[in-house]
Amino acid sequence: MNAFAEFALGPFSSLWHAGNLLDKAGLLMFASTGAAFALKSGTFNLGGEAQIYASALVTAMILSTPSAVAAAELAGSGGSAGPALFFFALACALALAAGGLLGFIPGELKARFGASELLTSFLLSAALLPVIDFLIAGPLRDEGKNLLATPAIADAFRMRSLLPPSLMNASFFLACGTATVAALFLSRTRAGYRLSVAGTAPEFARFAGFPVKRITVAGMTASGALHGLAGFFAIVGTWFMCHQGLSSGMGWSALAIALIARHNPLAVIPASLLYAWIESASDIAVLSSRVSFDSTAIVQGVIFLFISAKLPIAGQLRAVLKKRRAR
């Protein structure tokens, strides 16, 4: 029991751990809101990994162009912050566009040719990941450094930590806000209503005259863009440079979270926190007790197992609890 408490409370043992948990949860929240969005619109976006990765690369590249570096220097030396803000916004816009484009392509292929987005989004991602790996290992690498990564972005572009020394920054609150806005969009607007109806009841949506194909494309594009946001904040808030394999696992985790949250962006907030908590706790356990493997893979496996087994088990549990209560 002692060991369990140690495991469970590990992430809250210091500001460093707690802050990083929130930071990690924030990034996952952006991506899983995206995953939930696709699921709501009746599509499966399996390209999250590459959408995050590509957007992160775009962000890191924009923010390390010579003019961006000059703008950051200007802001850092007490000059006008305007140019730096411009590059920050530009990087954000292009990250959104990059993620969105990678969602749009499979969406459009589905709407136009009926190609399964399950397949196309996955294949597009699988094809793109090694390309990005190559770009980071080769032409876009910071040649002065020994890391497999792009050059680090300037201080002016880095989001300030709100819980030093941890990485937790305003992106966590933005992520909560994004998930809430997504939830409000789905439940409180006509467009959101049509999107979820097209997702749960495609034939009915078509019968009722909703633009089902456009909705498919929009859902996938929005999903990609939200993954792109995760990539953007991964650079400006967490890593400050695009490492090779930066997104590895994040896209899949996001999908798992969206499924746990049963496609509901509002439920994505606690689900991301839960997921980040488990991941952080296991990381800490690994670091403090000589467990010699990448344990996150096992944790993920367990979670996926429960997603598939969740409903019957939850049902049985509820039945048992009910009986207890009745007694």
């Binding site: 109806v197 749960t200 009841a201 034939e203 009915f204 019968f207």
Partner: peptide, 9 residues
């Protein structure tokens, strides 16, 4: 059931 409506709606 499926066209005029949907059980999940």
């Amino acid at each position: 059931t499926w066209r005029g409506s949907n059980p999940e709606l």
